[in-house]
Structures are given as C-alpha cells and as structure tokens.
Write a protein that binds this DNA or RNA. Structure first.
Lengths: 340, 340
DNA sequence: TTGTAAGCGTTATCAC
DNA sequence: GTGATAACGCTTACAA
C-alpha cells in the first residue's frame, strides 16, 4: 500500500549534503567526516530510508542473491540442505532464490535458465539428480553452460567443469563398509534396493558390489532391485509380489525404502535383525520412527552444506584457489535392525 | 564469467529499429508491425538477449518476486507447503525468495524487514508460529506493518489486519472430532500432547477440551502435556519420567510426538491400540513408517497452499474482492493406532 | 572531505 | 507504427 518511497535525493536534501555523500555513508566509506556521517545516519533513521535494491542492482550488476535449485523441496534430505545453506548465506547477507525443478531434464534446464536471468551471483544445485547418471556428459552440459555466467555449486553430486564446485559424500565407501559388516556377520544373500539411477545411487551400488566381490561373494542381478520410487508402501508391496526371492539382509539407498523392507518382514513374519538385517540411508527421522529403530548411514548434510557455503563465499569474494571437489566421510549409525 | 551482456541498444541497432520498438516487441505490444516484430525477435534469438531484470525492476518497481518466510524449512510440514507454493507461483512467473526465520520474534521481524527491502510483491508467512499465541496483538504488529507495503498471506495461521489474508485448517474441529471418537470408544483419560503455544496448538487444545466437556468428562491439567519440542525420543523419555501418569489414549499435535508415545508404550509393554489409542497430526511419512501405522489428521496442505496461491495471484492482479480468511476442513486418516 | 555528473538498461510519454 | 527522450534511484570516477 503506502509506498515508503524516500530516496537518496530526499535524504541528501534533508541532511544538507549531496547524494554522493549519502551513498558513501550507506556504503560505509571511511571518507566521510564523523559529523556528516552522524547527521546523514540520523536522517536515514528518521525517514526509515532503505536503498532501492533495483537501482543498486543496476549499478553494481548484482543483487547479492544466490539461486538454489532443488528437485523437490519436500524431500527431507534436500530441505535440510536448503535450511543449512539458507542460514549460512543469509548470515552473510546473501538472499536466496529458491526454485524446484523436479527430476525432468528439460525442466531442470528451464529452471536454471530462469534463475540465471535473475542475475544471481551463484547457483547451487542440491541433489545428485543434477549429476545425471555420471556417464553421458550431455546430461550435464547445461550445468557447464550455466557455469560460464556464474559459479555453480553442486551439493552431493559430481559434475566436471570449469567454475563448477562439488561437495559430495563418499557414498561408495559407506555402502561398501556396511555391506562388508553384513558379510562378516555371515549374511550371504544381501539385497540392494535403489530408487534411481543417479550418480549417487550408482556410487552406492558400486560400493555394495565391491564389498561382495572382495569377500568372494557373487554379484547377483536378482538381488539388485530398482524401484520406481521410495515410498514405504510401494517398496513393501513390490517385495510381496516376488515369490521366490530369498534374502537375509537388505541395503537400501533411502531410509524409507529400508522401512518398506521392514514392513515386508513384519508381514512375512521375519524377525529383524535375527532373520533379516536391514540398513537405511540418510539417518532421517523415519529411521527413529521405525520399530525397531533403523541402522542408517548419515550423509553428514550439515558438513556438506557448510563446506559448500564456505567455498561459495570464498569464490564470490574473489578467491581463486578454491577446491573444486570436497568429499565428506559418511557415518554409520548403528541401531536395532542390524547386529553388527 | 562471460557477461552475456547484449542490451536493448544492441538489439535495436542490429534490428535497425529504436529501443522503444524492441521494448514493445519484448513486452508483446500489438502496436508493432508483423514484419518488424519478426525481425526483432530474430535478432533477440540470435543474440540470446534477455532483458536486464534490475533495469526492469527499476522502471516497474517490481521484480515479480514473492517472499516466503518459514521458521524452519527442514520441517516436513513447511517444506511441503513451500513445495506447493513455489510450484504454483513459478508457473505464474513469480520468483520465490526464501527466508528461514526460526521461531524467535526478533528474528522474525528482522527477516520480514529484509524481505520487504528486497521489494517483493507479496509476502507469505508459513506456519502458525507467525500468528503468535493469538492473544497479544503486539506479537503480530510487525505483520500488519509489513502489510502496509505488500499483501501478506499467512498459511495455517490467523492474523487480523488490513491487507493480510489467511488460510487455515480447522484444527479445532479436527481434535474435537478425534477426541470425541476416542470418548465414544470408552476412553476416559485422554492425554493431550503439544509442543508449542502457537495459535494452531491452542486451537487443537480447545477442540480437545470441547470434546471432553461436551461429553461430560473433566478437563484435567495433568493430562495436558506441554513439550519443549516434538522429537520422538524426547517425548518418549519425558513420558518415562512420569511415575503415576495413567492414560488410555493420547492426542498429539504432531505425528512425531505420537510416535514418541508409541515408543513409550512399547517400553511399558502397553498394546496399541488395545491398551492405548494414539492419534497424530499432519499425516506425514512417519505416520506410515511407525508400527503399527499411526492414525493421523491430514491438514490438507495442498489445498491450503493452493487457496493461498490463488488468492495471492488474485490480489496481485488487482482484484479487490478477495476473501480475507479461508478455512479448510481437515481429514481424519484412520490407521492402526486407534480402534474407531 | 564533499559535490557534480555520467552511466547502468529498462519502460513510458510524447511527438511524428 | 515508430522513434526521441525523460524518468527510475543508485554508484562512482573525477573535480573542486
């Protein structure tokens, strides 16, 4: 309603100085006498003046804004990321423009383009879905394109390119370790459940297979399940459909998938962990909500986000020796669905 | 890196027209000959020109941006809201600036102010925390203040004021209904568990008490538990500390709180729902992750967000007959922690 | 230390 | 239909 439109000219007039001086005061230049500064500051205070960000943006060609792109903000993992990132960026006076692209490549491209048109200072892509399947570089060309305009930061995904910075969790090691623990416990038929073909999902699969191989166990295609999504009930129902699929352990790439396996076990009368050991991924609230509580892998989101934000700030402040890729060690959180 | 800085002058020159004509073409004015339009469009295409949003903002005093303020985006309820809101706004060419304020009043004020300084076109406050406790209007004055600059939309909270629009879920009815169902089943000592004193929490409490009263049951202070947070384990542990607190049902204002009660029941050897019936709130993934699956109240987030976005768009398009308050009917989702 | 004036890239109001 | 040109509100050389 009321357009609180005091501008720099008003302040200058009321303070009896030129607009240049007002600008200097606002921007904290030290080339202003204390007396003048005080007077101007007083007027600014009295009038409730705030600089017009559009005009500032026009002159400086930046609005201190970073774009965050997420496939789905209602996903707990990603919303947690956004929470940490926003907090740190806000604390450093950057505003966050949020965009939710979904998982479709065309829409991702479109969203990136729209974000770039907003003249953001940097772009953060959250989630390994933006890394494509890690094979065809065509899937990530739009990211390298974007990186020609602004620095791009990928959270939990690996993309090669100039001006693109990645922070990942060593998912491969995590599933390798957890699978190895299962094998040491004597488990022979370990199911691997995945809900996508993202880079991250592939890393997890690789870790699982490495563990099998290096322990002399066969890599069985029938034990590798690719699901359409990670909804608890879908996983449960899919498992129930299989007639003769025997397994004594399950490694899931998502907590909810693991809970789906638990639901299946309950229906089949299988005891967890005695008959069936299960591990989840992400250490989310559902791992605690489940009964028994779910052993899970903690991807250390907070550290990943902190690393990302820190390097983003470095790059934007002009530093040139910023690490391109940082890998964070995941943690295995032992709970009651495993015996190791 | 590369500043793709073709501006309107470049396009005008290359197309052999004036900048005014380019502007007309870009903005779809019909007062341009088809021939000219085509030529200009071609040049725009060739050069990959996009208007500078800052300059546009300067002239129009808007950047087609709405601010969304959330206390905590990693909270599933709110991130779901943001997901729906962002989707709908994006589809209507509005960009979303996201800010996470936390629950502290001073920080809320600060975040609102920062958002307003960004010259947003509208402000959305997600969560009943912004409605304060519904008693002291001092707690919401900053919202009415903000509403002097831009229309403010409160999601799931009630705030009186000019230019502020609210969309709420009838929480009171929901807990009244659910409590009544419990009473009809013969439950006599029904626990009410809440994690805040927000407007929404108070409505839920009111509904619970109404049900007790109108069914001739006493309202017992000892059965009204106020928790510091809604973490599953905290709830469980708090309950375990009470020595002589007997109850045969529990109504929680959050699914995770209800799951905490379930964990307590498991430790105490209480059968759910035989010995203890439990209801949650929000119908979140944890209500399905829990065993047995949790009866919950669905606040119909999607409808609430849709209502909000629709009215926001109406207001911004200049409509004046937009409803100030819309209330959505919640749904009771029966699962296995209750017998009704 | 302060002021003047030239951009920044649009949109909008006039003329023509 | 189209083209000059004046805003829009700020930053920043350059002058004083």
């Amino acid at each position: 309603m009321s357009d609180n439109t005091r501008n720099i000219y008003d302040i200058a007039r009321l303070a009896g100085v030129s607009i240049a001086t007002v600008s200097r005061v606002v921007n904290g230049s030290d080339k202003v006498s204390e007396k003048t500064r005080r007077r101007v500051l007083q007027v600014i205070e009295d009038e409730g003046y705030t600089p017009n960000v559009f005009a500032q943006g026009l002159g400086l060609n930046t609005m201190h804004t970073v774009g965050i792109l997420v496939p789905d903000i209602s996903d707990l993992y990603m919303s947690t990321c956004v929470n940490f990132l926003e907090e740190e960026l806000h604390a450093n006076n950057y505003e966050v423009i949020l965009s939710c692209s979904g998982f479709d490549l065309a829409r991702k491209k479109n969203h990136v383009e729209m974000l770039l048109n907003k003249r953001i200072d940097a772009l953060i892509l959250v989630g390994s879905t933006y890394a494509g399947d890690g094979r065809s570089s065509a899937q990530t060309d739009y990211i390298r394109d974007a990186a020609k305009s602004v620095p791009v930061f990928v959270v939990n995904g690996l993309v090669e390119g100039d001006n693109v910075y990645c922070t990942v969790c060593d998912d491969r090691k995590a599933t390798r370790d957890v699978t190895t623990l299962l094998i040491k416990r004597g488990r022979k038929r370990i199911l691997f459940l995945s809900d996508s073909h993202s880079y991250s999902a592939q890393q997890k699969l690789a870790g699982y297979e490495e563990a099998l191989t290096s322990n002399g166990l066969p890599v069985l295609g029938e034990l590798r399940l690719a699901l359409g999504n990670h909804e608890i009930r879908c996983v449960r129902d899919l498992l129930l459909q299989y007639q003769n699929l025997a397994f004594d352990a399950a490694v899931a790439v998502e907590d909810t998938i693991a809970v789906g396996v638990m639901k299946y076990a309950a229906i089949k009368g299988l005891k967890v962990p005695e008959d069936l050991e299960i591990t989840g991924y992400n250490n989310s609230v559902v791992s605690i909500a489940a009964t028994p509580e779910l052993t899970s892998i903690d991807g250390r989101v907070e550290e990943i986000c902190h690393e990302t934000a820190a390097r983003l700030l470095s790059v934007l402040s002009g530093k040139t020796d910023v690490e391109k890729t940082v890998s964070i060690e995941p943690l295995i959180v032992r709970r009651s669905t495993t015996d190791f």
